[in-house]
Amino acid sequence: MTTARFWRDNATRYNLMATRCGSCGKVTFPPRHVCPICHRRSMGKMEKFRLSGKGEVYSFTLVHEAPAAFELQKPYIVAMIKMDEGVMMTAQLSDCEYAEVKIGMRVKATLRKIGEEGAGGVIHYGYKFVPE
């Protein structure tokens, strides 16, 4: 059962919550308790905020061989997205053709099913990106 493990991060997965260091301004995603640059100086100064959800494709691939959980979706596009706030994340691209995807392509976040624990298990929702 991974219910609680997923639930714990739902706010981040649904709404792209990130942290900004109150000391140096660096943005981190997922949220962190300590800024990787300022270390102890950032303690208690990490502010949570919602990313705009917009960014561009940094790199991408089409996945043909995947774990069982993704069987129904394959082949699917996985990309690294550089968000406008500077932070990068890994997610699937949806609602577009693989041939259209280019490095630098503008995309925006949306909420989709990202997995489920079998037919009787909990369904996991989270961000995917679609062309802007």
Binding site: V78, T90, G126
Partner: peptide, 29 residues
């Protein structure tokens, strides 16, 4: 398929693998 899933756990489970990123796909990128 199971081996693929196990190897994918060497990546960040909560922020990469869960979204469908496998070890080959990360290296492909």
């Amino acid at each position: 398929m199971e081996s693929n899933a196990i190897q994918s756990s060497a990546a960040d489970q909560q922020w990469e693998s869960v979204f469908g990123a496998t070890s080959p796909s990360l290296h492909a990128m």
